[in-house]
């Protein structure tokens, strides 16, 4: 963080000149950090919950290893319901649950539950699709070798689908950047909060411009990292 700050102070005169509306750059830096923390925290939890849910969706699906039409139907419906409302509405609906879970509706802590609940169904669907891309023959070969379902998940599906899974993580991370910015509007903090409060409510367009630029850079970085990882595994 200190390096980031010193970079800010070195370039401060130029930035001050370009964006005169912005009085406090450290506030912007803090907002940046908040956004990254929200993103990091929610992405980690999303993968943690979404991956098993994706596995479950895949396994219980029609014609799959553990086909369970009723369970699949219930999971699928839940996932669809959670994916239906726009994120900002979902966030408001979830406010009581959020304060129950983390004791506050505000700040980074208050933002994490709705972000995760919003992103898990999305990520789980992507994971399910990635698993379906794995050739059925490879799974059949593993069954013929006497593999258990768990062994197939652990040693066949996850490694064989890793390109698709990393691509899903990338897409989800970028979606989460958008969600965190929306969350800013209802008290989550971060870049979205600045853009909304200063840029929109206080009519200081410079905030809007800088925030949007920072978000573009963030999304670019995420996409490049994601593409690198996918490219590394995709060569095989």
């Amino acid at each position: 963080m200190s390096m980031m700050m010193s970079t800010f102070s070195a370039t401060a005169p130029v930035l001050q000149h370009l964006f005169p509306d912005i009085e406090d750059w450290s506030e912007l830096a803090q907002a940046c950090l908040d956004t990254l923390l929200m993103l990091g925290g929610s992405l980690t939890l999303t993968v943690l919950f979404g991956l098993p849910l994706g596995v479950l969706l895949y396994l219980t699906g029609k014609g799959q290893l553990r086909a369970m039409p009723k369970l699949y139907g219930a999971l699928s419906l839940t996932v669809n319901i959670l994916r239906s409302p726009p994120f900002i509405i979902l966030m408001i609906v979830l406010l009581p649950l959020t304060s129950l879970l983390v004791g506050t509706k505000l700040g980074i802590r208050g933002a994490i539950p709705p972000l995760v609940i919003g992103a898990v169904p999305f990520f789980a669907r992507l994971v399910e699709t990635a698993f379906r891309e794995v050739e059925h023959g490879v799974i059949e070969a593993s069954q013929a070798m006497g593999a258990t379902t768990w062994q197939i998940v652990r040693h066949v599906l996850l490694p064989e689908a890793r390109v698709g899974i990393w691509a899903s993580v990338t897409v989800t991370a970028i979606a989460l950047v958008g969600y965190t910015a929306m969350g800013g509007a209802i008290g989550a903090g971060g870049l979205g909060d600045l853009a909304y409060r200063y840029g929109y409510l206080s009519n200081k367009p410079d905030y809007m411009i800088v925030t949007v630029l920072l978000l573009i850079v963030l999304v670019q970085i995420l996409q490049v990292i994601g593409d690198r990882i996918v490219g590394y595994y995709g060569r095989r």
Partner: peptide, 21 residues
């Protein structure tokens, strides 16, 4: 049955190898 299957090898038209390994 899984135990028995370990004593029955199988090969396939499209090989069905693990591409990631």
């Amino acid at each position: 049955l899984r135990e028995q299957r370990r004593h029955i090898g199988m090969i396939f038209q499209h090989f069905n190898l693990l591409a990631s390994q």
